[in-house]
Design a binder for these strands. Structure first.
Length: 700
DNA sequence: TGCAGGTTACG
DNA sequence: GTAACCTGC
């Protein structure tokens, strides 16, 4: 494996300069990579990637996402070789112990890595937030005598640096983004790649071969390489191509479902192949240029594209401030929404057999390519939540499993926005009509015809509502509704009525639970303890199933936001714990941050039958995250925060603690939430506590 | 210029 | 559905 061409300093050569481990994660790039730059500055570098999908718990990456990762790592390795070293790869179920192994076998004295801000669902450590895990990694390695330093490479501004006038986190996107654009200091300017990288001593550090796909998957992935070129230098080319090409027309074209006028940067950004700060930087240059030229449309385009960058930032911001946002609605009342638990609906949606052409075209494109235009993501997810009224987390999980740019933070934000569970999200009771949206995003029906060949001969007049087409028209087009293309599985009008009823029920339950709390009737209408576990059959991906129709009565409904059926292979069962256990596990012991605690008792994963995939951790009670979160090593908030502004890299990271956003009226509904006894909102009174990581690492 | 009425966008 | 925005009198 060590075919390193130019292994300068290899084989014990790093005699007087120290050797650093650079831990690559979702920052698979050479350019503008602060951790790598720090390693190069310090001396010799051992570049490491650790594949530990078990640490993603429930969110094992989907097939196409793994394909991308594989290509991206190969690309990175090739680059590193040309710079003078190569990528050490490790297969692990525990990143931190693998890091320690690498430290021992290379004699490294430093570890550098870049922050992740996302959700993190690791069974052993039980943390909702990557930063918390990273802090723990830092402490363990510091105890081993390693100097550890971490950096921001993924965001324009660290989440804890963007606050309102009262130093509280924002709860709406527009305010957040406005603040970002008007910060007193610019985002750090992107840096150039190092000139060369001196390799650390990797002679005694073996690499593992990483398996990212099985044989079937290799076949399914064969076509991806035609459309996509993963890897950081390709990402850079894609960025230039977009900025010098389609960007100027972005404001005009961005709504077309079918167009190639979006940036296609999202998978590159997800894996950190391109630095968002570089994107921002180049956009600003164009913005200034076009503003000077009086090019209004160009300026507008930059602003709009910047906004989508801003949404990505905001998704990390939300994850940081609300570590459960991938699991549960940010507005508590949605917990009482009676979701329709109907797998045949779910299946029809996945297979693109809902009877609504725009939705179906989107779902088939997603399945076939792993890609979906942003507008169509909104259409299919909105249909999922509002028309089918399926639990939003199912849809989110399906996106996670199928999207090439699957990104838990962005997708959680998107689904919550669609579900109306953000203060600035869409209204609950708004149903978008796929027929009208069809003519908006795909006015000539070209997109539908591409993905639904059975409708290809239908005239544009009827393409988005074939159920209204006269029989002779259908016949001429070879369309037999209910036979080769389904009739709508749910009528929009019926969905509207049903949605109204559900919302009424939701508000009633919410009021009742509020009343129960005020009366001290503790559990009130608590739903968690009585929601039955939800098992899923294995046939989910079959293609030839005729979706069930006309479920107008007796729809199975649940009030809890169910755990997601696994799309890949698993048959899952969740064992409930008693609600008193919930309270206990959640309510106490937050001062201590036990290290290396195996909280099996809190984790209700009982049965996972799972073919070759990673162990899947199942839990439908998000509280289990809570019990070992907590501040330690706190600094004075104000002081630390001012330091962090001056010295952005490698220094300050706050210990996660719930944000103060619940004091905003927006989240007030959650405040009295009985099921979420230890609700992150309940603990909002605390502000983010800052921890000086550098202090830890300087204890050398 | 000011207002009514229509249109668009909405993270 | 609402609020900002545009248009025509």
């Amino acid at each position: 494996m060590s075919s390193g061409l130019v292994r300068r300093g290899g084989g014990g050569g790093g005699n007087n300069s120290c050797s650093s481990i650079v831990w690559f994660r979702r920052d698979l790039r050479i350019e503008d990579n602060p951790a790598l730059a720090a390693g190069v500055r310090a001396g010799a570098v051992v570049a490491v990637f650790i594949w530990a999908p078990e640490e993603e718990g429930y969110y094992y990456p989907g097939r196409v996402s793994r394909w991308w990762l594989k290509q991206s790592l190969a690309h990175l390795d090739t680059s590193l070789k040309s710079f003078g070293t190569y990528l050490v790869t490790k297969r692990s179920s525990d990143s931190v112990s693998s890091l320690i192994d690498v430290v021992k076998s290379t004699g490294a004295t430093h570890l550098f890595f870049n922050h992740l801000y996302g959700h993190y669902v690791y069974f052993h450590f039980v943390d909702p937030l990557s930063l918390v895990r990273d802090q723990r990694a830092k402490e363990l390695l510091t105890d081993q005598g390693i100097v550890v330093q971490s950096f921001n490479a993924d965001l324009l501004y660290e989440p804890w640096d963007v606050n309102d006038d009262q130093e509280r986190p924002f709860t709406t996107f527009a305010d957040f983004w406005n603040k970002c654009l008007n910060m007193p200091y610019d985002p750090a300017a992107p840096t150039l790649p190092p000139k060369r990288i001196t390799s650390g001593d990797v002679s005694r550090c073996s690499s593992d071969i990483l398996m990212f796909e099985n044989e079937t998957e290799t076949g399914s992935n064969a076509l991806l390489a035609r459309a996509w070129s993963p890897g950081w230098s390709n990402a850079d080319k894609a960025l230039s191509a977009f900025i010098n090409g389609p960007l100027i027309e972005y404001s005009v074209n961005r709504r077309k479902a079918d167009s190639a006028t979006t940036s296609f940067l999202s998978p590159h950004l997800h894996f950190g192949e391109v630095s968002v700060r570089k994107v921002f930087h180049l956009l600003r240059i164009k913005q200034v240029l076009w503003a000077n030229e009086g090019n209004i449309a160009g300026e507008e385009s930059v602003n709009l594209f910047l906004k989508s960058i801003g949404l990505r930032e905001y998704s990390r911001y939300i994850s940081f401030n609300h570590p459960y946002s991938h699991e549960r609605p940010l507005l508590g009342h949605l917990k009482f929404f009676p979701w329709v638990v109907d797998e045949s609906y779910f299946k029809a949606w996945r297979q693109g057999r809902t009877g609504y052409p725009l939705v179906d075209a989107g779902m088939r494109e997603l399945w076939a390519t792993g890609w979906l235009h942003d507008r169509i993501r909104v259409v299919v997810s909105s249909f999922f939540v509002k028309v089918l009224q399926l639990p939003w987390r199912w849809g989110m999980k399906y996106f996670w499993d199928t999207l090439l740019d699957a990104d838990l933070e962005s997708d959680a934000l998107g689904w919550q926005y669609i579900s109306g569970t953000l203060p600035d999200g869409r209204a609950f009771d708004r149903i978008d009509n796929p027929q009208f949206e069809g003519y908006k995003f795909d006015p000539y029906g070209e997109y539908v015809r591409r993905w639904l060949p059975e409708l290809a001969r239908l005239p544009t007049e009827w393409i988005h509502h074939p159920w209204n087409a006269p029989e002779p028209v259908l016949q001429a087009a070879g369309v037999e509704l209910g036979m080769n293309y389904p009739s709508p599985i749910v009528e929009i009008d019926a969905a509207k009525d049903r949605l109204q009823e559900s919302l009424t029920e939701m508000w009633q339950l919410e009021a009742a639970s509020r009343a129960a709390i005020e009366n001290g009737t503790e559990e009130g209408l608590g739903d968690s303890s009585e929601s039955a576990p939800f098992a899923f059959p294995q046939d989910i991906m079959e293609v030839d199933h005729e979706p069930a129709r006309n479920h107008t009565t007796n729809l199975p409904r649940r009030h809890q936001d169910q755990m997601v059926p696994s799309m890949t292979s698993s048959f899952l069962r969740v064992e409930e714990s008693s609600s008193s256990e919930h309270r206990n596990s959640a309510g106490d012991s937050r001062q201590e941050v036990p290290m290396n605690t195996n909280n099996v008792s809190q984790v209700h994963h009982i049965e996972t039958v799972n073919q070759g995939g990673p162990p899947i951790i199942v839990n439908n009670n998000p509280q289990w995250f809570n019990n070992n979160l907590g501040p330690r090593n706190m600094d004075d908030t104000a002081e630390s925060s001012s330091i962090s502004r001056r010295d952005r890299d490698g220094g300050l990271v706050p210990v996660w603690s719930p944000s103060s956003s619940s004091s905003s009226e927006h989240f007030v509904g959650e405040e009295n939430d009985l099921e979420s006894t230890p609700s992150y909102l309940r603990r909002h009174q605390q502000s983010n506590q800052l921890l000086d990581w550098r202090r830890l690492s300087q204890a050398r």
